[in-house]
Design a protein around this nucleic acid. Structure first.
Lengths: 204, 204
DNA sequence: TGGTAAGTGGAGACCCCCGTCCACTTCGCC
DNA sequence: GGCGAAGTGGACGGGGGTCTCCACTTACCA
């Protein structure tokens, strides 16, 4: 991959990088439905240039979010290293959901490309998370009937908040996550747990 | 409204009804992005006919889902009549979420038209639900920091499941709702509560 | 410094969608 | 039955999207 990029001419390489950056910005701001022409314009290149580097919109999306995906991966592995598996579990869900709420395109890219991701990566992520789940259960803090598939459930549910303006999305996501974690936890202490600020959620 | 419809010629009235039915079916199956032409074709009419009765796509959507909205309203009022406010509360969330999971277009229509709905209706629905929430809290089964706005949160989260094939969406929605209700409940009994069957949620 | 392959931009082909127009058909009252 | 108004369908305008083609420009090596 690096080889392919460095075989490009200097100016081309820079254009490519700029396109990628702009794409990430715009996808985050406005979601995946932003037109290719808009990306090209903001990157200061023509449409053809864009298509020369990324033969299809899907390929651009994939590449633009590759970094985010690897962040997810990192989050999970870091959590696995945590001495307290429940805290690790909690952190994974909180961080990934925050990422989702912050970046409007990420959600769409995630559900759109999950099947396409190199199964190697997906497999690895999956196993890490399953391991984390097992440990958290063994630690007695995570309910026994929690399924690793519930992570998908959480992600999907959280993605439903993507339409909101960013600040609201973040607040809403935090509250949702707090509720869900409350449900996943096996309740030792019964004091009303952390529930972030409520926001007027009257739609638009 | 009835007057307007009956002033139509007999054939026109039937065409109108068929269009509406078809629209409901297609919106449920494929979501709101189904083209007007497809609706017209399946209803066996031309596009012009469709537009004569429903001057804009939005108006068609609105009318197509008016029924569903009134169902929601009915669900809430029925719940309010329930002697056990917590059971009423639970039922509202379960039923509305099921409706959402079953009908792919409903979610989109809901968030798209919530602001436009006669504020009278919305106001009324809202007050009913708030009342229900108060009672459930007073009954000691619903956590005190639950906000009526959390209903919106639930609906939005549940809408994130809309992309799944219908059966999966239903199963996933049921599990999500079970989790959320678990979080909303103030926990008297701590036995692992009803969590419906898990489903392989590997995306597509 | 000049030749050449790599790179570029913008016009436009192609497609899909919403909504309109108008010549034609059908209902239904007299 | 016949006439007028109501109703109808398909072609079409307008807009916006993805992706392609091609004449022109630019980097880079000898």
């Amino acid at each position: 991959m690096t080889t392919a990029k460095s075989q490009l001419r200097a100016d081309a390489r820079e254009n490519r990088a700029r396109v990628l950056t702009v794409a990430q910005e715009l996808f985050a701001e406005r979601g995946l439905e932003v037109p290719m022409a808009a990306i090209a314009r903001r990157a200061g290149v023509g449409v053809a240039t864009l298509y020369r580097r990324f033969p299809t919109k899907e390929s651009l999306v994939l590449e633009a979010f590759a970094e985010q995906f690897s962040v997810c991966q990192a989050v999970i592995e870091e959590a696995l290293a945590d001495a307290d598996p429940w805290r690790g579990f909690r952190t994974v869900i909180e961080k990934v959901c925050l990422l989702q709420a912050t970046d409007r395109g990420f959600t769409a890219a995630f559900v759109a490309t999950f099947p396409e991701m190199h199964s190697e990566v997906r497999e690895r992520t999956w196993q890490c998370f399953s391991e984390l789940v097992e440990r958290a259960k063994a630690g007695g803090r995570l309910r026994a009937d929690f399924s690793p598939h519930d992570l998908t459930l959480v992600l999907l549910a959280n993605s439903g908040l993507a339409g909101l303006p960013v600040e609201m999305a973040v607040a809403a996501s935090q509250r949702l996550v707090a509720y869900l974690l409350e449900a996943f936890r096996v309740g030792t202490d019964e004091l009303p747990p952390p529930v972030p600020l409520s926001l007027d959620l009257v739609l638009s």
